[in-house]
Computed example of a mutant assay.
Amino acid sequence: MAFAQTQFEKFHTVILLGYDENSELRDRRDTLLKDLKDRISPDAPTYSHFTQGSYALSTGVTALNGNPDMDIGLSFNCSPDDYEDPLTLKKFVSDALTRTNRTVTIRRPCVTVTYLKDGEPTHHIDLAVYSSNSDDQTQLARGRDCDPKAERVWEASEAKKLTDLINNQFKDDDSNQFRRVVRALKRWRDEKIGHKNVPSIGLTVSAYQWFSPSYDSVEGKPRDLIAIRNLVDKMLANWNGLRLVVELPVASYADLFERMTQIQMVDFKSKLESLRDALNEAEGQPDTHEACKILKKQFGDDFPVPEKTDTTKKTSAGVSTSGRSA
């Protein structure tokens, strides 16, 4: 059996994206927050900021298209009732951040700041605007300039609560494996899915619900191949008729795959089945070199393939899927 654990960990080191791995994006973030503080209208209410999305969850991956992003939440100290049109707050943010060296766009869920080099985008930062209602539930400002007033709305969205839930779901080595598995699935998605309707948060919440840590029962070493395979099996087993439905565990409780067309959903399922089969085939290989050749076809060129002469070794067959103590 070939588990290719060393290669999975090397792969993770190559694809992971976090604060320490992208100093330019981190510096841009700090500059944006300073500009916002210094230039926002005095008519705007006070606010605090927090990191959300993959940076807050430590599940970011390097972008294949070279255009990484970061998500920031801006929590304004006001009630949604104070700003019936949430676009007002988003314009405060947009006006403060507009500069000649970047483009600022008000999108429905956020304000996006994009940085360009030679006319091509290099990275972008999304700033989501929130306030809290009388029940202390955070509400997201949705709407653009071109939207009619009826479509400029406040929508329940508990980004901080979601971050806390996911970050506290697993501990220590289990948490580390969880993040490796999520990052591997994201890179697989980028390699294999030819559209943008399989969102990263959908894969992350799928793992939040169905990931089970896997270790060698003899030596206690992690087995990422088995953990990924078992998660994919769970996703396929939870297909609801023609679709996979994965709901946010916090408000707005939306189906994270709802934007996928039926054709895209069929393709998604087929690609997951191919991934499962490849993982099973790789596990059955006696040679890690051959196993990694199979895995590379799924995860892309960043997945390492060791020299054949170094990989024909006896491996332990004992695997536990319920954590180190099992």
Rank of each mutant, 00 (worst) to 15 (best):
Q52N: 11
T51M: 13
S48A: 13
S48Y: 10
L25P: 04
S41M: 05
K34Y: 12
R28T: 04
L36C: 04
L25N: 05
G53M: 04
R28M: 11
A56G: 14
R28A: 13
F50K: 02
S41G: 04
L57P: 01
Y47V: 05
T46V: 07
L33H: 02
R28I: 00
R29F: 07
L32I: 08
S54Y: 00
F50L: 09
K34W: 11
P42T: 13
Y47E: 01
A56T: 05
T46L: 09
E24R: 11
S54G: 04
K37E: 14
A44R: 07
L36A: 04
L32V: 07
G53V: 05
A56I: 03
D35N: 14
L33G: 01
D38L: 12
L33V: 01
D38C: 01
L33K: 02
D35E: 15
P42W: 12
L25K: 06
P42Q: 11
D30F: 04
S41I: 09
R26Y: 12
Y47P: 00
A44N: 06
D38F: 07
F50R: 10
T31W: 10
P45E: 04
K37Y: 12
L36K: 09
L32D: 02
L57T: 00
T51K: 13
D43P: 01
D27G: 01
Y55Q: 03
R26A: 14
K37R: 15
F50C: 08
T46D: 15
I40H: 09
S41D: 10
D38T: 12
R29C: 02
L57K: 04
R28D: 11
L57F: 01
E24D: 14
A44T: 04
P42Y: 11
D35M: 10
A44G: 09
K37P: 02
D30T: 09
G53R: 02
S48V: 12
R28P: 00
D30L: 11
